[in-house]
Design a binder for these strands. Structure first.
Lengths: 231, 231
DNA sequence: CGGTGACTTGACAGGATTCAACAGAAGTGG
DNA sequence: CCACTTCTGTTGAATCCTGTCAAGTCACCG
């Protein structure tokens, strides 16, 4: 597939005139990465940003002890690593391919010129960054204000909502990764899932989860006292 | 003071032509708030954003149980509540005045037009939002990957750095608020400060803190094992 | 078939919150 | 100016969640 065709489908570039798409395509380069490959690391000098073409990428931070916190999981056609394009300097986090993926690299120079020249691109970007800020605000809220069961409940409800309200969910990521998304570790996740099963909130078979008490999950997510209340 | 003069000094509007400053001034309104006043609440419909003129404002989230997590503390001439300007919809968090303050309100309509017309304003905004994203990434890292002593150590070092590396710090916020910034509660903060004093990292008199072991603090901030190691 | 990765479970320790009580500072009003 | 309330900060004891350490199962792959 031609790069132009990819760029055209990127939401961020919605409404860009063809010639500018072509200009972008000329400066873009494709990079193929294998599962587990690091695309960039925190602190690394940033001279451009990326867009996923196929595959998925996680953005994450690591503690000195090796614990991970996932900030984003990016699907197809989502830009990432764009922050240092506007602030200059270095990448604030790490990016790693979850699967064999193709990513597009757009060098900073040239891109900035384009932004300056095209107000609709600029406002698209403002919308994108604002959306990210919203997500972060929610993430901070979850991490700081809620306990793990509440976060997990939120996540399950989010999955359900994303699929038009089904009760039959299928985790599309391994549980280790889910744990890191939720800001915890696999062991804890495992236990809380078990507890939720025991308390008849959900049914669980491997990565298949069925919601059987949506109301209960919603209470949990809202921060109600933990499951298995036993006062 | 005239509104134009204020707007001119706002970093975000750096380099804007005078006539556009004047256009902004025409749509802006001033609002005076007392200490503790809520400027906007999470979920409230957003039809514009704010800029601090005098005083300070905190942006925060609240858990159902009443615990607070502070996202930002804004000094003079800093914009806030700007996210929904670009995403539409509602405010993602609450804003409350820490002191008697004057804030400027800029309605969304009109502002967006200005953004579309002025590329340098747009890039200023992109830089602003990107900076915020960076801060959030760091906040998430602190909350998720570090324990309270490490966060406190980071914060103290940050204060020191902000004042050109002094060892004599003066907290400009009450400790309750600092606790909420660090994602904890006053009791815990109090104890950890006491421990740091006991371990000769700092000296403490009310809100005056003197760093006496910077290296030690740096280790703590990096995530080394907690103070008062006693294995 | 040995080996690696994903996942689970148990025992345990430890950090942090909760509940409670209290002292000092600050601000209010008579 | 003093009594009183409120705010701020500190300390103690008990509890709980969560992470750590360790072991073990199951599935999949070379």
């Amino acid at each position: 597939m031609k790069i132009e065709d990819v760029l055209e489908r990127v939401p961020m570039f919605k409404g860009l005139p063809t010639e500018q798409i072509e200009a972008l395509a000329r400066i873009a380069t494709v990079r193929t990465v294998k599962r587990g490959d690091i695309i960039f690391s925190e602190g690394q000098d940033a001279d451009g940003f990326y867009i996923t073409v196929t595959g998925r990428v996680k953005i994450f931070k690591v503690s000195p002890g090796g614990k991970e916190q996932v900030l984003h999981i990016l699907d197809m056609l989502e830009p990432f690593g764009e922050v240092p394009v506007f602030t200059g300097g270095r990448f604030p986090a790490n990016a790693q391919a979850l699967e064999e993926s193709k990513v597009l690299f757009l060098p900073r120079s040239g891109f900035m010129q384009l932004v300056k020249g095209d107000p609709s691109l600029a406002t698209n970007l403002l919308a994108l960054l604002s959306m990210r800020l919203r997500q972060f605000a929610r993430l901070v809220e979850e991490l700081s204000l809620k306990e793990v069961p509440a976060r997990l409940a939120s996540y399950l409800l989010y999955l359900s909502e994303r699929d038009k309200g089904t009760n039959d969910l299928e985790l599309d990521i391994p549980k280790v990764l889910l744990a890191n998304v939720l800001g915890t570790i696999p062991e804890t996740l495992s236990r809380i899932l078990a507890r939720m099963v025991h308390d008849h909130y959900i049914r669980l078979e491997g990565r298949r989860i069925t919601i059987i008490d949506r109301g209960g999950l919603e209470e949990l997510a809202a921060g109600a006292r933990a499951a298995s209340e036993q006062r």
